[in-house]
Amino acid sequence: MSILQAPAPTTSETGTPRRIVASPAAWAVWGSVVLFMIFLVGIVGSVLVNSFGTRWFGTWLPQGWTTQWYSQAWTEFDLLHVIIVTLQVAVAVVVLSVLVGVPASYVLARRDFPGKKIAYLAFLLPIMMPPITYGIPLATVLYKFNLAGNLSGVILANLVPCVPFVILTMTPFIEQIDPAIERAARMSGARTMAVFTRILAPLLVPGILASCILVLVRTVGMFELTFLTAGPDSNTLVVALFNSMNAAGIRAQQSVDSMAVIYVSVMMVLLVVALRFVNPTQLVAQVKEDQDS
């Protein structure tokens, strides 16, 4: 009986102003959202504050402020090299997964052929499986062919979830392009190659851009697969962060935190860029959502 929903549920949909005095249920919901946000701010904030602090023990804030941890982390963890590796891996994965994924998603979107369901399932599985489950057999195979432990292994391993991801994001995108345009081009004498470069490519640019950004964010943030296949020279930023955290006690906590802040700022830049092109929900999964933004 305590749950009273005074306004009809349509109020939020029609956009009429809400009442200030909300029901207890609303308070509980908004309270938990605020609590979650406080946790989030606390988690990111304490890393940020610690990375700038001199000595922080038993007080609200550090005793003094400094930027020395950044220069220390930069040299100690050889961050320039790590960032270059991260960029190389990310760019290679994005380019390769688009090159491999887009033609396949074209076929899946436009054509009907025997075994289409099986092909679709084969592309779906690497996304549904958690990386650590298939990562260990994959790393074993890559080590057998001497592909793991260097840059190529990291790139190959990261492609495994990314190619299917491109296929699954691009297939609905291609489906909504009117096939009549292609037929018109073919009637005018265009070959498959010309249809692709002159007709489809310009229409596909927004979709390709969106999936590039999503793959970029996933690759930079991908821990497990990189961790399992990287050698000492091919660590990406997130793996370097994990390694320095795991070898605790050797290094100052602040120095690890300043690397974490560098990682956060890289991710934030990517996220801001990503959100200019895609809906936040798309970062999670490919779900059809009504255009409300």
Binding site: V44, F223, L241, D257, V284
Partner: peptide
């Protein structure tokens, strides 16, 4: 979306602090 993009490694570091 922020915690999803940051990933578990950074969340772990933040939670420790």
């Amino acid at each position: 979306v922020i915690p999803i993009t940051l990933g578990t490694v950074l969340t772990a570091e933040g939670l420790l602090n």
